[in-house]
Nucleic acid binder design. Structure first.
Lengths: 300, 300
DNA sequence: CGATCTTACGGGATTCGTAAACATA
DNA sequence: TATGTTTACGAATCCCGTAAGATCG
């Protein structure tokens, strides 16, 4: 025989009112049904919990003890379920975001800041990793969501496209290209270049563009970090291409940049989640947040 | 929709084994039945708790949170029910004993001491009141049990007879009656007497005996307390009658006593409980304790 | 006689187990 | 193909509500 939560509720109603019929009304139950429940509970306990006299009901010693225990039990239960409801509704929880380097510097912090305003009790964690690694974190379940260039044909991923991240040419303000209205691939060909190393998705995009337009650039420098790249450019040693998002939240004094006028000189940034794993309740509101922010990003 | 304890148990089994089929075996349930329970629980929660892949089951973020909550919940529940079991079985609890003065001095402390050895975690409370008051405490529910002379024809009381408490004549060792083998009512007639006042049941018994044997005694003193009575006797001012139980645990140096040889010079002491109120689980073992002790009392 | 709890009993919802279907490594 | 979960469905069980019975003031 097992004691159910309903029985505990019913017991508490009877204990509070000291009346079977009133408790039945409170529990939206017929009086005999409530009586039967109390009886079953007493059988489970192995002791009477109430003394029934004709005109009044009173608690036995065991009943009084059970009243304390049951009150605590019901309270714990309610607290626990309320807490769970917070997690389900997305009021509380933990959200792990992975962001590709370009996103980690600009979009991700803003998205997280906006999200945190609406969800002050949520712990948000940010991992900044190269695109492939970020997506890997989502695949492995370490991260709930990656902000990263979308991955072509990946059935195990759900990808929400956010905005197009155009390539820009970055050069010193004194550089000849800085004063041009538009910059095309063939315009940049003559100049010494800096590129990031192979592992970066930016490098892959730039290489693809080179190939597409049959442009052979002069890679004078191959660096690991964007900071180095910008330093070289600021020192007038070379020019380089970067996604626009990289430039957004960076100090650009001493640098000029121009969008590259090519119909394919961009990559699509997406919010990437696992399609096999069932989503955290926090993902949906965070996605909305990303979309709102993306429209603002696109306008600029 | 309400979440049941069974569902919590089932959830925990799945969470521990991360296998629906193994959990079903653990819960003595068919696997589809268990599956349905998890499904209902998830619907109650409003969120998936497990991700089912073909070869392995894993917990969602919400599931992991629920695991903590549910573990605590189950543990609390088990603790609470175990505690209740202690109260029902009589391992823990509180027992309120009322004892008539004669019992409060001798029988009751011994009974409580013996009971406390077997039930170290039980709180025992002792009220020493005149017989009628003691029985009143039982009737009103303040006391669980009274050790007192039995009450004739009281349907609302359950009375377990324990032993016969004989009247003894108490006198100074130098008194003529102290050297007699047997003492009868007519033997005590010539001497000055001390009696307790009307409210005591001892007085009522003595009066009844006087009446029965047509003896007119000389009540030289009427006192409230037995101590006073014994003091007067020790001072050779008078003799008096008392129930034997009074003498048992009292310093009797300077006093002699003899049972009064009369077939009705006793009262029956009983353990008195309420028959309307359902008995505390502690009453039965305490009654056994009283009966064991009563046989020892009767032998002396 | 009236208020209140208990017992008796029929009907409806819930939950179980078996069997078949389905999905993936 | 083999392992493991879900779906489908008939059956047993549980639980409720109505009606009648019992008890005490």
């Amino acid at each position: 025989m097992n004691v159910s939560l309903r029985q505990v509720e019913i017991f508490l109603a009877v204990a509070r009112t000291l009346s079977f019929s009133q408790a039945a009304r409170d529990c939206h139950l017929s009086q005999p049904a409530l009586s039967a429940n109390v009886k079953r509970l007493e059988e489970s306990m192995g002791a009477r919990l109430f003394d029934r006299h004709t005109r009044k009901v009173s608690m036995t010693a065991v009943g009084q003890e059970f009243f304390k225990v049951a009150s605590a039990m019901a309270e714990n239960m309610d607290m626990a379920l309320a807490r769970m409801q917070d997690f389900v509704s997305g009021k509380r929880g933990r959200l792990v975001i992975a962001a590709a380097p370009s996103m980690a510097a600009s979009f991700a912090p803003q998205a997280i800041a906006e999200f945190a305003r609406d969800h002050p009790e949520v712990d948000v964690e940010l991992h900044d990793e190269l695109s492939d690694l970020s997506v890997g974190l989502v695949r492995s379940g370490v991260a709930d969501l990656a902000l990263s260039p979308v991955v072509p044909k990946a059935a195990d991923l759900r990808q929400l496209e956010l905005f197009r991240d155009h390539l820009v040419l970055v050069c010193h303000p004194s550089h000849p290209l800085a004063s041009r209205a538009t910059v095309r691939w063939r315009d940049v060909q003559p100049y010494a270049h800096v590129v990031v190393n192979q592992s970066s998705s930016v490098r892959q995009l730039v290489d693809a563009q080179y190939a597409r337009y049959g442009v052979r650039l002069r890679p004078a420098f191959e660096v690991a970090h964007v900071g180095t790249m910008l330093g070289l450019i600021a020192a007038k040693l070379c020019v380089g291409e970067l996604p626009e998002s990289f430039i957004r939240n960076i100090d650009t004094t001493g640098l000029s940049y121009r969008r590259i006028a090519s119909s394919a000189a961009y990559r699509t940034i997406g919010a990437i989640t696992s399609s096999s794993r069932s989503p955290s309740p926090l993902i949906a509101p965070f996605l909305e947040c990303c979309q709102r922010l993306a429209t603002r990003f696109a306008r600029n």
